[in-house]
């Protein structure tokens, strides 16, 4: 896995986050308590001189790990975040694709509508999954949250989609260019707090966090960010290998994204 220059990556991300605040009226960010969205919030804090200038939304399906709830509440307090918890209803008869699709996406739709957000910052990365390679930094979604990946606006020379280009909202992806290992480099350097689920316990750790139903841990002895990075440098498996929904079919992610899943 390639390590990039995190100082340059942070500059690009900071530009995109500031651009979002500049061009939209009502911005929010998704925050799962995972490493990516937590790093993104750190970047935003620095870009805005200490205070994150938009609310962060946690989509809570009620079956996240206890560690995640504690991590969320502690950090929200420490960083003085405006936290919005959007409760989703678990449908026990569903699992995998349809579970994530219906639970999380419905809850997100509701909270977006309630608050009238016109831009939503989502901390996805291109190296996570093939289809994410197709994403833009600013990606318009229609009122049904659908992503029309074949007809995306041109994005070049620091000119991005603005509100005028869509009747729905715009998804913003400030850390699209980061690799998994870059997030860890940054976490280490900036001392970003880490959800303890990422550290090994009894020979296993979580590499990517979903909810308790469909995330499985990977074999690992890493007990620090440094050790996580050492393991990643030689790994042969993909980051999301532990996620149930990704295994079902090669193009499940495509369907989820088109439905508005993050």
């Amino acid at each position: 896995m390639i390590m990039q220059n995190i100082s340059e990556l942070e500059e690009k991300s900071a530009y995109i986050i500031r651009e979002t605040k500049e061009k939209f009226e009502n911005v929010a960010a998704l925050w799962s308590g995972g490493k990516d969205s937590t790093a993104m919030i750190m970047i935003a804090r620095r870009a805005f001189l200490g205070k994150v200038p938009f609310p962060v939304i946690h989509i809570d399906n009620g079956i996240d790990f206890p560690e995640t709830y504690k991590f969320r509440d502690d950090l929200a307090k420490k960083w003085n975040l405006n936290l919005i918890v959007a409760k989703s209803r678990i449908k026990p008869e569903l699992s995998g694709f349809s579970c994530c699709g219906s639970n999380k996406t419905d809850a997100l739709k509701e909270v977006m509508k309630e608050h009238g957000f016109d831009a939503l910052i989502v901390s996805i990365r291109r190296d996570e999954h093939g289809i994410r390679a197709k994403e833009r930094y600013f990606s318009p979604r229609d009122t049904e949250f659908k992503w029309n990946y074949k007809d995306q606006p041109a994005e070049l020379w620091n000119n991005y989609s603005s509100k005028m280009d869509t009747k729905g909202h715009v998804r913003v992806h400030p850390i699209l260019d980061w690799n998994e290992i870059d997030i860890w480099q940054y976490t280490l350097k900036m001392k970003v707090p880490v959800n303890p689920l990422y550290y090994s316990s009894n020979g296993y750790r979580y590499r990517s966090l979903g909810c308790t139903h469909c995330t499985v841990p990977v074999k690992s002895n890493a007990r620090s960010v440094k050790q996580i990075m050492d393991e990643l440098k030689v790994t042969e498996t993909e980051e999301r290998a532990g996620r149930e929904q990704d295994k079902e079919k090669a193009y499940v992610m495509e369907k989820l994204r088109a439905l508005g899943y993050m």
Binding site: K21, E22, K51
Partner: peptide
């Protein structure tokens, strides 16, 4: 690019 607020200051 624009402005941001920090406390009472605008930068």
């Amino acid at each position: 690019q624009g402005t941001i607020k920090s406390g009472r200051k605008t930068l």
